[in-house]
Amino acid sequence: MTKIIMVFFALVAAIQVIKPLGWPGLKHRRDAWKLAVGGFLVTLVAVILAATFQPAA
Rank of each mutant, 00 (worst) to 15 (best):
Lys27Val: 02
Val47Thr: 03
Arg29Lys: 14
Arg30Pro: 00
Leu35Ser: 07
Arg30Trp: 12
Leu49Ile: 02
Lys34Cys: 09
Val42Arg: 03
Ala46Arg: 05
Ile48Glu: 01
Trp23Leu: 15
Trp23Asp: 03
Leu44Tyr: 09
Trp23Glu: 04
Trp23Ile: 08
Lys27Met: 05
Lys27Phe: 05
Phe40Leu: 11
Arg29Asn: 08
Thr43Ala: 05
Thr43Ser: 10
Leu21Met: 15
Phe40Ser: 06
Phe40Ala: 13
Leu35Val: 04
Val42Gln: 02
Gly25Trp: 05
Ala46Met: 01
His28Met: 06
Lys27Thr: 12
Val45Gly: 03
Leu26Val: 11
Val42Ser: 03
Thr43Glu: 03
Ala50Asn: 04
Val42Cys: 05
Gly39Ile: 08
Val37Ala: 15
Lys34Asn: 04
Val47Met: 00
Phe40His: 03
Val37Ser: 10
Val47Lys: 12
Leu44Thr: 10
Ile48Phe: 13
Lys34His: 09
Trp33His: 13
Gly25Lys: 11
Thr43Arg: 11
Arg30His: 14
Val45Cys: 04
Gly38Leu: 15
Ala50Lys: 12
Ala50Ile: 00
Val42Phe: 13
Val45Arg: 05
Gly22Phe: 10
Lys34Ser: 10
Leu26Gly: 09
Ala36Thr: 08
Gly25Met: 05
Leu35Trp: 12
Leu21Thr: 12
Lys27Asp: 02
